[in-house]
Design a protein around this nucleic acid. Structure first.
Lengths: 337, 337
DNA sequence: TCCGAATATGAAAACGGTTTCAAAAACCTG
DNA sequence: CAGGTTTTTGAAACCGTTTTCATATTCGGA
């Protein structure tokens, strides 16, 4: 394992000059540059990144916090973020909080120990006042998830609008008893969708009915459970808005199993526009989220913060959501394609 | 940002003693240990990990190579691996090769630059002779994917058996014209499954028919395409074995759309036992892979290699696969549950 | 009581780079 | 050609730990 010293010796130059060549600094004569390049080549030299990080105080590593990767929405986010990071010569460290505030807090130490240059939170499990002090050690950027108190950049989607257009679509189809499945209780994303949901209802003069609200629905199994609980109501809903395509798929699957026709007996709207929406029969009406754009933006903002070294600044970058109408809400054959 | 020096000064001791306390070394009196702990507490001291890595020559980071995260099989692998890593106080760096040999080679430099302690390959895009030289810089462990030439530990699944039991099941259901969809052309996992597929066929005296073979099928869209190509054959197959549940789902979705009944007109076997197998109608017969166990084992082996510092040793750890029979191959109502 | 072993502590070297600072050489400009 | 600027180079400091080595103290057994 050769060091910069070995290269310097072989080239008959100083460490400094070798370092200059490595880092493309100006003021190195073409002649010496060549000597250095040759020596590096001959020795198969590669700079040690720990040594680099120690001196230059940067690791080129960014930590990405997600609740769990298996959730297709977060898979997509991680995938997009990794690609964006690679393009900027950063590596991504994955941190699964598994919805646990302790795990999140524990991973936060990556920032304290300077193991990463910054943290991107796509999920928040602690109150902001708990997270805020970590800003002493490096930048935090929120991506998708957000917090009203947070004095940091947030790259997010217009979830209020998302909840609104999905619900309005159901209302326009004539539905009046609409159930609502939301995700994690403490998620602000889910909160905003609920605001949009309520807004649409109120425009139609409908009051939010608590018996139609289901919380902490995350997987297809939750969807199946919700279907049965809906069925057991004295006045079952004729439509349901869900916080994820998986939950929607679970509901549809269970509905079909019990002879309940979708969308005729029960219309279903998903969220995320995952692959499954095109595979289910009927295909699932859903809300498309520009995950890739959001990930790219979050990464850009993060890099900017790393360089500018100003971490405590609230900034909002918001992207729009789009309703995609498919078979689970309309019988129109054309829409099914 | 306080350093170990600050702690030492505040405690009235040397850096050495503080370091001993941090690393739980013996030969520190209880009295001094307390002094150090107090000083660390007071200053909110956390050791700098770059400095640590530089001196101790270990980063506690492991790179995991996958083609892409969105593929549910790899999502699951990453998720399990991250959990296993966290339990051993390691962090995971995600590297998506996107089926590109250059990207893979590029990421391999993480080992050279000592940015990671080891590399786990769940996907291989280069010939082994290209990868082998990197063993000079650290351990490589193969996980799921493998290479006949590789002189390193491989944690894998019995893919030959997987292909065999899935195909045998179709044969037992009376099918004789069985199509075969495999994944990436250069994948040995796919190769082994094909061996198992052929073995089952030959036991029934059937010769492998190239017109029934479809290569590089990865997504549900590929499945849809395959369905149409199968349909256009003079003697369409009555069953199809696929290398992934997504492809199976794509075939089933397209079949249903065109009035082709599954399993009556076409039986379909998937692979991976992903969530979608329970959501499709019919549910999908598939092969369950013990991904979590495999990930845990791979990580354990990796850590063992990091410590033992012997990297060039071929070792095979093989886990069994299990066929799960569902509605896409049998009409029996019971099996559908 | 004496001596070797175990315990306890610190000074200094080492890890492998980058950055600062100083100085030498080359280049202008009037 | 004097004097200033730009280009080129290297010595040494520095980043913040861990490790090595030396030394001092305490302990246990003969």
């Amino acid at each position: 394992m050769s060091t910069i010293e070995d290269v310097a010796k072989l080239a008959g130059l100083s460490r400094t000059t070798v370092s200059r060549v490595i880092n493309n600094h100006p003021y190195v004569s073409e002649e010496k540059r060549k000597l250095v390049m040759e020596a590096m080549e001959r020795l198969g030299y590669v700079p040690n990144s720990s040594a680099r990080s120690l001196r230059s105080q940067k690791t080129e590593l960014i930590a990405l916090f997600v609740p769990r990767i298996m959730n297709p929405f977060f898979s997509q986010l991680v995938e997009s973020m990794e690609i964006a990071a690679a393009e900027h010569n950063y590596q991504l460290i994955i941190c699964q909080t598994r919805y646990s505030s302790e795990k999140e807090l524990n991973y936060m130490n990556l920032l304290k120990t300077k193991q990463v240059d910054g943290v991107i939170l796509a999920s928040i499990q602690n109150d902001w006042e708990v997270l805020e002090p970590f800003l002493d050690y490096g930048p935090i950027v929120l991506c998708n998830e957000f917090d009203e108190q947070a004095n940091v950049p947030s790259v997010m989607l217009d979830q209020v609008h998302g909840g609104y257009i999905a619900t309005k679509h159901l209302l326009e189809q004539g539905h009046r008893r609409i159930a609502y499945c939301r995700g994690s209780t403490r998620s602000n994303v889910a909160n905003h969708r609920e605001i949009g949901f309520r807004k649409a209802l109120s425009e139609y003069g409908i009051v939010f009915d608590e018996q139609y609200a289901f919380r902490d629905t995350l997987h297809s199994e939750d969807g199946r459970r919700v279907f049965h609980r809906m069925l057991s109501l004295s006045e079952p809903p004729t439509a349901v808005f869900t916080g994820s395509d998986e939950v929607a798929a679970g509901i549809i699957s269970e509905a079909k199993k019990h002879g309940c026709k979708v969308p005729d007996h029960l219309a279903v709207v998903g969220f995320d526009n995952q692959a499954i929406t095109q595979l289910m029969e009927p295909t699932i009406t859903t809300v498309h989220q520009p995950v890739e754009k959001m990930a790219q933006k979050a990464l850009e903002v993060m890099i900017e913060k790393i360089h500018s070294r100003t971490y405590r600044q609230r900034e909002i970058y918001k992207f729009p959501l789009k309703l995609i109408i498919r078979g689970s809400t309309v019988t129109n054959k054309l829409a099914k394609l």
